[in-house]
Computed example of a mutant assay.
Amino acid sequence: MVTDLDGTLLDHPKYLSKKYVKDLNEMIDKGLKFTIATGRDMKKTLKAIPDLKLPYPCILTNGALLADLKTQEFLKITNINPTIINEILTLSDEFKIPPIVFAVFNPNSKKVTFNKGTWGSKGIKPLESEHYLPFKEQDVVSIQFHTKKELLDPFKDIIYKNFKKETNLIYIEDVAYNALGYEGEWYWLEINSHEAGKAQMLRYLTDHLNIKMQDVVAFGDNHNDIGMLKAAGYGIAMKNSPAELKEVADYIAPSNADGGVITYIKSHIEELL
């Protein structure tokens, strides 16, 4: 069983409630095979589920990374072709849309560093060039942009046209910005390697664990979960999901605010075990 975090497992915007952590840990202790596939990095994932006893590695950064949260070791890392990175950054400069996240892997320290600007209630401030240009020759795991849709659309379209075979693009709306009082439609554009993706990394993990994809139950709530739900044997969308995800799902669970993932697992625990 694999689940997304934000909008799916998490009933709070920043974490999973203690009562749900307790319920889930009890089911994991009984033998539930369970893990996470999230767009979050390791630090933010650990903050959201610090007390969850995950028995298997987790899929992070929308499938760009596979990690053991207990040891904080990265087990599989995907990186973007260096030539493409240079071309993307040239386009970024031309469109005057600097990255807001620039993640790189250091093979010597075996660590992934996420250079980040600011967003959300703190305001919006992309990265200054000195926080990403000196790192572009390293193993770049992920480049992310965040701005209004009308600015990001033409930038995204060129990248997709030029590099669709060499990259995995995630383009989703930041719906939280309406609640924060920002005008217009604000979107995230995340660029990862073509080897990345929740579905791709899930296939790698199941092969490693000798589990058949047809035996996997997957939960998600957004467009970046479509591939994972389609690849799994049984795909479950949350009630709060967009129509595009619900169309590919085998079942619709209650919303994340109502503990939909935990509710489903508890009501099906015997067959899942």
Rank of each mutant, 00 (worst) to 15 (best):
N108D: 13
K111G: 00
L69V: 15
K96V: 10
D93P: 04
K76G: 01
C58L: 08
K149I: 10
I77S: 00
T90L: 13
H146A: 01
G63M: 11
N106D: 15
Q144V: 07
L69P: 08
E128R: 13
K116F: 03
K110T: 11
L69I: 15
L60F: 02
K136C: 02
F114D: 07
F114Y: 15
T90S: 14
G123Q: 00
L151F: 14
I77G: 04
A67R: 06
C58P: 00
V104C: 13
Q144P: 05
T61H: 06
I77Y: 05
K111S: 09
V141K: 02
Q72V: 01
G63F: 14
S121D: 06
L127D: 09
A67D: 06
K70T: 14
N115R: 12
P126H: 04
L89Q: 03
V101P: 03
D51Y: 13
F135H: 15
P99Y: 05
K70V: 08
G117I: 04
P134Q: 02
K111H: 12
I84A: 07
T83C: 08
T118S: 15
T118M: 12
T71W: 03
F74Y: 15
A67G: 11
F74C: 06
L151I: 12
L52T: 04
S129A: 12
K136S: 05
T90D: 14
S142V: 00
I124W: 08
K110L: 14
K70S: 12
P57V: 11
G117L: 02
I143W: 08
V104L: 07
F114N: 13
L66I: 13
N62S: 11
P99E: 11
F95E: 06
L91K: 12
L65D: 08
H131D: 13
Y56G: 10
S92L: 06
E150D: 14
V140G: 11
E94D: 10
E94Y: 11
V112Q: 00
K96E: 15
L54Y: 04
P55Q: 12
C58K: 04
K96F: 07
I97K: 07
K110G: 04
I124A: 01
E130V: 11
L69Q: 09
L133R: 12
I59E: 03
L89H: 09
F74V: 03
D139E: 13
P107R: 04
N86D: 15
V112E: 02
Q72P: 02
I97H: 09
F105M: 00
Y56M: 13
E94P: 00
V140K: 09
H146P: 07
L52Y: 07
D51E: 14
K148R: 13
H146Y: 14
Q144F: 02
V141R: 00
L66C: 00
G63D: 12
K116N: 08
P99M: 09
V141W: 01
L65Y: 05
P57H: 07
E87G: 10
K136M: 07
K148W: 03
L89Y: 10
